[in-house]
Amino acid sequence: MQNSEELKWALLIASLAMLAMAFCMIAFVMYYQKKRFEEEKRINDIEKNYNRLLLDTALNSEETERRRIAQDLHDDIGTMLSLTKLSLNQLSKLVANSGDEKEESIMKKSQSLVEETILHVRRITRDLVPTTLERFGLMEAIEEFIHKLEEDNNLVIAFQSNTEEFPRQGQKLELTLYRIMQELVNNAIKHASCTKIDIVLEIDEEMIGLRVTDNGVGFDPEKIKESNLAGLGLLGIESRLAIVNGTVQYEQPARGGSSAIARIPVNPASGNKPEPLHPFRRERVNI
């Protein structure tokens, strides 16, 4: 009888201990799983921030390098070309006095070549650093870009905005929108065989939207991204947007062609205007 009672207690205690272990096991799995997910999320966030920082630094370096090259072209080559032009002007007067027509013709050709080179250098400098964007804002920069393109290409580019006075945004945001617009328009010209491009810039209280639509052959963004090199332009757009918390969406309108819509949260300018190109400045530019 004594043994029977002891057996009962032993069984009860063993069963309860086993149950306690089972409860602990379930609780542990739930707790550990939750902890691991939190840890994984934290690591992902760190990785994401790190990649973003890396991308930001790369783009900053690119812009700094562009500015440095533009500065060198403007200060060194540009100055030397201007001096060459002045010297040629003086020489031209001497040649004109000598009365030799052949020498005069060579002189005029040299002067015209130098002037053309000066124009080229100016254009390259402007392309490298969008000074209009920095000085006058996004709408003026886009209009200037369109004007230049229409001169060089046989296509119609329409630009419209939902506001006449587009409020100035942070330098990084404006540059991002400008570069994306450049990339999308260049892509349309290079790959879409289009005859018309529509650029729409819209702003509301929270978001800025940039839509570039063409009437070309259209494309499948996913397929292009899969083929490594062809997708670099689109990846570049996505990388730039990731830094400013923006998104991009590609559509294929029913009437043909393609349409890309970039959306970026509004970030009004802080008031620090960038320095214009200056002959003696070489500091790093933080955009």
């Binding site: 063993a14 069963s15 086993m18 149950l19 089972a22 096991m25 379930i26």
Partner: peptide, 20 residues
């Protein structure tokens, strides 16, 4: 997960008792 938890508790309660 709930199915597993239920089974774990049930079999844990039975495992020592079953031979008896």
């Amino acid at each position: 997960f709930w199915v597993c938890s239920g089974l774990l508790l049930y079999y844990s309660s039975l495992i020592f008792l079953a031979p008896f």
